[in-house]
Design a protein around this nucleic acid. Structure first.
Lengths: 210, 210
DNA sequence: CAACGACGGTACGGTTGCGTCCCGACGTGT
DNA sequence: ACACGTCGGGACGCAACCGTACCGTCGTTG
């Protein structure tokens, strides 16, 4: 398509990584402060100490910019180490989640983007993909291991299990916005284990009586 | 302060309730579609088929408007009838929550306002008050009854209990945005009961071993 | 060492929304 | 029947932001 006689950009004609980073950081800050709805390119540029053009050269629009950030943030998967028991694995996961949600940026940006996803198909798609990855990872690793160990029934409903695991922590920290002390984690973990044991009846079958 | 010689407004010089309702409805629609961040008085007026002045006469600003709506919506408390068992009470509550979150308006507006609350003190205050009311109601009624019946330990941690009850449903419907079939509710309820039994060790005491 | 070419920054027109002011319309109380 | 006084509606000035076009700068490549 393009003429291959053009030589590769070089010298000053190349994106400066430091500026890209500055923009990324500014977007996070701005996203936390005003949310996606009111995120403005001008404000990002101001905060980053950069011109608007610098932003438009890298991303086509505000949506592109945020989608890229989401992809980058969602890319890093959580390596859940095997502690040998469902309870131990759960405690680790809860600690990781709590640690992440304790950061001001995360606890403001995540709910904001999730709310935005409810009305923006593009964000919803990207975010749902990331969320599904996360949930599947939790389901496969945590629940999968527990099933292998015989701690849970093989036909445990993964989706319901993830709800029981992730829901309480998210509600507490991102919605209720009450701190979750580290001392509370073990108790919460054991409560969830109890719930999972009961919920392991698997997908609802038609044997339900009326 | 004001001269009491002024006679009360009458005739056409009085707020028309139908218009007030139209505005309220339009705000809900608009809030669901673009969120609080991008909520504009002009758009509300357009959608309601009403002039901007009509809105400014009733509320001083956009914030006032939304705060008023929140108060109105949060005002109605949930009457949880007593089924005689924690499991039964829980199923009722879960059904009520699921029913509420199934509405498109609710499932879009609630997460949006909760996210906005993270950065707007005024909204946070109003919303936290409503949320606290809700959580205390759940805690007092559901947990309280269960304790009286002897189903739960008296020193059950109310806050942790509410997290375990509300978290999973909210995560499933408002975040994960996956449907919650009615057939799943009983299983979820029994799982939560199991969790509550374990979590009823009460506030963490210093007896924790290392 | 010279020329290339994309870089970052400024300036611009167009659009949108805010909050206010003024106008004619209208229905109740005197 | 009249006068009162608030109503809803349209218009205005102001501010912020979008996305683009243009400008001088600068480092590498040949």
């Amino acid at each position: 398509m393009t003429t291959e006689k053009r030589r590769a950009p070089a010298g000053a004609a190349v994106l400066r990584g430091e500026i890209t980073s500055a923009i990324r950081a500014a977007v996070m800050q701005e996203l936390a402060e005003v949310g996606y709805g009111r995120l403005s390119i001008e404000a990002v540029a101001r905060r980053a100490g950069v011109s608007k053009t610098a932003i438009y050269r890298r991303w086509r629009s505000k949506l592109d910019l945020v989608l890229d950030m989401v992809s980058a943030a969602a890319g890093r998967n959580l390596p859940l180490l095997d502690t040998g028991s469902l309870l131990g694995d759960l405690e680790i996961l809860l600690h990781v989640m709590a640690r992440a949600l304790r950061h001001r940026l995360a606890s403001q940006i995540i709910p904001d983007l999730l709310a935005e996803a409810a009305r923006n198909p593009q964000i919803a798609e990207k975010l749902q993909a990331a969320l599904d990855d996360y949930q599947q990872a939790v389901g496969r690793i945590l629940i999968g291991r527990a099933v292998e160990r015989g701690e849970l029934s093989p036909d445990t409903d993964r989706r319901a299990a993830v709800d029981l695991i992730v829901g309480p922590v998210y509600w507490r920290m991102a919605i209720s916005r009450a701190p979750l002390d580290v001392e509370e984690v073990p108790r919460l973990a054991s409560a969830i284990v109890a719930a999972l044991r009961v919920a392991c009846l698997g997908p609802v079958r038609d044997e339900v009586e009326v």
